[in-house]
Design a protein around this nucleic acid. Structure first.
Lengths: 204, 204
DNA sequence: TGTACATCAGTGAACGCGCGTTCACTGATGTAC
DNA sequence: TGTACATCAGTGAACGCGCGTTCACTGATGTAC
């Protein structure tokens, strides 16, 4: 079939495991999940449809159920994945151990404009707030470790960590609502500067 | 018809304008909108369905289009309405002109637990961030007036106002994600205390 | 190493279902006389 | 004030459509000999 040939043409030549092998299956599962983890952050949990998702990774809808039990099972995994990726980014930008570095990265225009690879907490707070217990406890875990990571940069000061995380999540989410770029930038900058000052204040 | 009689039985006896009058139509439109404004905050914009919405105000789905042009036209109005109600509450709690009063009300457990009558910004930030320009500019307007209201309590200090609003929205949204009540309460309390201190610091 | 066959990843037609929307109809309203 | 009639708010059957899910099938894989 033409369709099929076109698909196989996409696979790197010389790849020993093609379309139907077990390793290829694992790889496809991975691609579905990665795509879903982005889609979920870009357009929300409800936006993910089985048909479109499979199409976007070059497969047909029927194959989906060989990888996941149901759409909602995928959604739970995708949320988890999205949160992990976002957390990994945050950890990476805090490598120096300084809050100011983390804040500069988190409240950057780049992060604001890269919803699909950014922090899933900010991308999905209000959605998850009304989701089932599963989703909420998945996100809760990541919120807690976000707070812990920030607290570590603040000599373990939990109060300031919770405030900083609230302000970071709030500011990023709000900057994505505000359409006017100048105003959106201002929100990021004002909160960024404030939190950076808060950093220095704690470690004089 | 029984159905019809049952419905009319719900109307207050002595009411001169019954089921099909013009004033009743206006009242029904109002009830649809009020219900939608709550539903939108409780379960998200996408959760609102024409059939269920009409049923919840005691009407049938067909009548909907006598009140609104389409589901999405309703959604825009419902969002607006939800934001207005939330703002009205915030203004009311800031009657004293002190930030601490506003913060105490905004970051209260009552507010956290009353999603459907509370601040629509916190209830819908991440949803609106990925919605169309219409929805975003509707919410932007309310975010700006929220910031302005807070700034007024801070001698016009815009930076601190933006930080405070970000922290308030972030903390409220996060407190709704966290399932453990003690932990959720702690988030509210820590940010509340911090912002109240910020208030006193500004007006010594 | 080469061949035969069981396995199983992926395909695409088909299904039931719920949704937004339309429309012919009903019966109360409220106006003209 | 009372009657006849046009208006129109609300009803509920019907529609197309997209969605999640199922399943008989295809053909590549990889194992047994």
């Amino acid at each position: 079939m033409q369709e099929n040939d076109a698909y196989h043409a996409d696979v790197k030549p010389g790849d020993s495991t093609m379309g139907h092998s077990q390793t290829e299956k694992a790889r496809n599962r991975e691609r579905i999940l990665a795509e879903a983890s982005q889609q979920v952050r870009r357009d929300g949990l409800e936006s993910v449809g089985v048909g479109a998702l499979m199409k976007s990774v070059g497969l047909t809808h029927g194959g989906f159920y060989g990888h996941f039990e149901s759409r909602s099972a995928l959604l739970a995994e995708a949320l988890q994945r999205a949160l992990q990726e976002g957390e990994a980014n945050a950890q990476a930008s805090a490598a120096s151990g300084r809050l100011s570095d983390m804040v500069r990265s988190y409240l950057s225009r780049t992060h604001r404009d890269a919803r699909d690879s950014g922090c899933a907490v900010a991308a999905l707070v209000s959605d998850v707030a009304r989701a089932d217990d599963d989703a909420r406890s998945i996100m809760t875990r990541h919120v807690e470790s976000f707070i812990a990571a920030v607290a570590k940069t603040l000599d373990g000061d939990e109060e300031r960590a919770v405030v900083a995380v609230s302000a970071m999540v709030g500011a990023l989410a709000l900057s994505r609502v505000v359409a006017d770029p100048a105003r959106s930038n201002a929100i990021l900058k004002l909160v960024r500067d404030h939190l950076i000052a808060l950093d220095s204040a704690g470690a004089p």
